[in-house]
């Protein structure tokens, strides 16, 4: 009996190994468990918690959210900041990336552009408070060169938050776009030139169709980042009014009202809006060509 088992064991091991399961595969287990415990579980927990409100039925939190303009308006407010910021960043990134890919010393520019990403939104908020403030250099230039009579208000309102999303978001969008643009085989553009297509025609007929799938991903990621704007909306915006974004509502529910159930509901709504927009973008991407951006054999 035990002999039969002994003969079985190595065969089982062999079978598992043939399916790719052996000691090495087990190395992935700690990381998977960690993400399950601290990412997936909290998310599911939050989802369940959102249906267990402090009072009322299972949907009470969601009903409360969508019947109180102070809460549901945050979706519109956030979209009003996130969509223009995303579009601006993506639309500016494409021509700049098209130009920069021809540069020989790209690394200096990309290194400069990584600085705002590295510094993070809190520092950008503090920097812009000084720089864009009524006594800052921007207003100095506007007033001293006679562009405006008196300093204009750029902080503690909508524009401050939008500008902070451009400062932190443009480098991100640009670097991602650049990596997609440089992935397009330059021989394709040369082929277009040899076939009589001028630069504008080459862009619309060759580059843009090949770039579009990557651009959809870039737009999705940029949007998700902009939609989850938090510190700059508090520090640089008007968190009680025009820049009361959805993450502020969630934060206040959790850490000021200590209503974790409501906070989870708002976090779920935030995630749902992001998912809807991302799915829409990626579905549009599915309609586009998705093959490699080079012509096969190299």
């Amino acid at each position: 009996m035990s002999a039969a088992l002994g003969a079985h064991a190595p065969r089982l091991r062999l079978r598992l190994r043939n399916r790719g399961l052996d000691g090495v595969t087990l190395l992935v287990v700690p990381a998977v468990l960690f993400i399950l415990a601290l990412f997936i579980y909290p998310f599911l927990y939050g989802l369940l918690l959102s249906f267990e409100p402090k009072e009322g039925g299972a949907l009470a939190n969601y009903i409360a959210f969508f019947s109180d303009p102070f809460l549901y308006d945050t979706i519109g407010t956030t979209l009003l900041i996130a969509i223009p910021a995303t579009l601006l960043n993506v639309v500016l990134s494409v021509p700049v990336a098209m130009r920069v890919r021809l540069m020989r010393h790209q690394k200096l520019l990309t290194a400069i552009l990584v600085i705002p990403i590295t510094l993070g939104t809190v520092l950008i908020a503090e920097g812009l408070l000084t720089y864009l403030g009524p006594r800052g250099w921007v207003n100095r230039v506007l007033v001293d060169f006679g562009i405006t009579g008196s300093p204009i208000r750029l902080v503690h309102n909508y524009w401050g938050v939008l500008l902070s999303l451009v400062i932190s978001g443009f480098p991100f969008t640009f670097l991602l776009t650049l990596s997609y643009v440089t992935g397009i085989d330059p021989a394709l553009e040369q082929a277009g030139r040899m076939l009589g297509a001028r630069s504008r025609a080459r862009f619309w007929r060759i580059i843009l169709p090949l770039l579009a799938p990557g651009l959809a991903v870039t737009t999705a990621l940029s949007f998700v980042q902009a939609f989850s704007v938090f510190p700059s909306a508090v520090l640089l915006g008007a968190p009680a009014g025009p820049t009361r974004v959805i993450s502020i509502a969630a934060y206040q529910a959790a850490f000021e009202a200590y209503d974790y159930s409501m906070a989870s509901a708002i976090a779920m709504i935030m995630a749902a809006v992001q998912v809807i927009i991302v799915v829409a973008l990626l579905a549009a991407r599915g309609l586009l060509f998705r093959g490699p951006a080079s012509s096969g054999k190299g």
Partner: peptide, 14 residues
Amino acid sequence: LVPPITYGIPMATV
């Protein structure tokens, strides 16, 4: 891909 503030609130709760 999910921004930290979105998953951060349920995670902090847990």
